[in-house]
Each structure stands twice: as C-alpha cells, then as structure tokens.
C-alpha cells in the first residue's frame, strides 16, 4: 500500500458493508444525503434527455407550421378545445396531489401519502380516458395518418399537422402510462410502509418525472389546440 491511500477519518478498520446503518444505504455511498443527492442528479439528467427528445418534435412542428400556417390553422379546428382544456386542468390537479404525496412522504404521513398517490393515479386515468375519446373521434373522421387517412376536405397540408399531433400526443400519452406504472409501484411500497422522513427518494424522483409529463402537456396544449 503506497502513501496514496490512507484510511479515511473515522474509518480506520475499513468500510463495513453490512454494518448497522440505514438498510436503504447502498454500499458505495458514505451517507444517505450523498445517495439522495446523487439519485436526484441522475433524475434531472434523465429529465434533460426527455426534454431533448420532445424538443426534436417541437422544432419539427415549428418548422412545418412556419411553412404551412394556413393549413395548420385549418387543421387545428378539428381538435376539441374544451376536452384539451379539461385534460390540462386534470393534469395540473395531478401535479398538485403529487406534490402533496412527496410532502406526506417527507413528513411520514403514510395515509396522506397513499391517498394522494391514489388521487394522482385517478387523474392520470381520467386524462387517458378523455384522450381516448378525442382519438376515437379523430380516427372516425379519418384523420389518423398513413393508410388510415381518408379525410378528403380541407387544405392539402393538413395531413402533416395530424402526423405531428399523433406523434406528440402519442409520445406524451406513453409517458403518462409509464408514470402511472411508476406511481402504482410507489403506492404498493407506500402501503408496505417503505417511506418516511429517513427515506423518500423514490417518491421524490417519480414526482419530478410526473411534473415533467405535466409540463410537456402544458406546452402541447396551446401549441396544438390554440393556434391563431
């Protein structure tokens, strides 16, 4: 052993991997705070990748809209603003209940945590039900792109608007479903009593993810439903 490595202060007998510390602490971290900060940093990096992924679609949409402003304006009249607005409200409420869930986990209020996670799930489900009705209406009108497209009226380039509409809301919808899976997992662990003031990292991270899903919709709604 060279002079390069010395035992760390307070660790003279080497690191004890199965010692008497928090069972949630992984072996390669020194303390819970370090583990929490690291996990949070990782989540933020993941959220950055999500923003860039949706960013590609936003840029593509912007370019095509600048190219065919009239067609995009005409096409967006097929969207139901009141349904879009309803979904916006539903997702905003779900973000609020998610914040309450994180707070409940931090303060160790298990029942409040379970209630709010369940409420968040209900809101997410409502969002998908509304979206389902919107989609089936569009498909019925023949606005689904590709070989399903048989809407003969309107401007020639409305087609591309619906390609973006279905890609963007579809990708967002799949994130809602992923989020519901994650929240269900939290709910099961919350019922088992896994979370408390000492350990609430998963609730916090899923909360961050859920807010991003909400935020993307906040941008999608005016972009797609409120043109002109």
């Amino acid at each position: 052993m060279s002079s390069h490595t010395l035992p760390a202060p307070g660790d003279t007998h080497g690191h004890d991997d199965h010692g008497h510390h928090d069972p949630n602490l992984q072996h390669h971290f020194v303390e819970m705070a370090q583990q929490f900060d690291t996990a949070k940093l990782g989540m933020w990096l993941f959220l950055a990748t999500e923003i860039l992924m949706f960013g590609g679609l936003f840029v593509g949409f912007g370019l095509q809209q600048a190219k065919f402003p009239e067609a995009f304006k005409a096409a967006h009249h097929h969207l139901d603003r009141s349904m879009g607005a309803l979904n916006t409200v539903v997702l905003l409420i779900s973000s609020f209940t998610m914040v309450l869930a994180v707070w409940a986990a931090q303060t160790g209020k298990r029942k409040v945590l379970i209630t709010n996670l369940a409420l968040t799930l209900v809101c997410a489900g409502t969002f998908l039900v509304v979206k389902f009705f919107e989609y089936s209406h569009k498909i019925h009108e023949g606005l689904l792109p590709g070989k399903f497209f048989h809407y003969a009226h309107g401007q020639p380039n409305e087609y591309i608007f619906f390609s973006f509409y279905f890609m963007m809301t579809g990708l967002h919808g799949s994130h809602v479903i992923l989020g519901m899976g994650a929240i269900t997992w939290l709910l099961i662990r919350a019922i088992k009593g896994d979370f408390g003031p000492g350990y609430y990292t998963p609730v916090d991270l899923v909360g961050l993810f859920w807010h991003l899903v909400d935020l993307i919709w906040i941008y999608l709604f005016p972009l797609l439903y409120l043109i002109g």
């Binding site: 052993m1 002079s3 760390a8 660790d11 690191h15 991997d17 390669h28």
Partner: peptide, 10 residues
C-alpha cells in the same frame, strides 16, 4: 470493492 481502505487524495 476496489480499495482495501477508503482512499484519500494526497
């Protein structure tokens, strides 16, 4: 686990 002791930068 890489190092017998927790290494410190010297």
């Amino acid at each position: 686990h890489n190092f017998p002791n927790n290494p410190v930068m010297l």
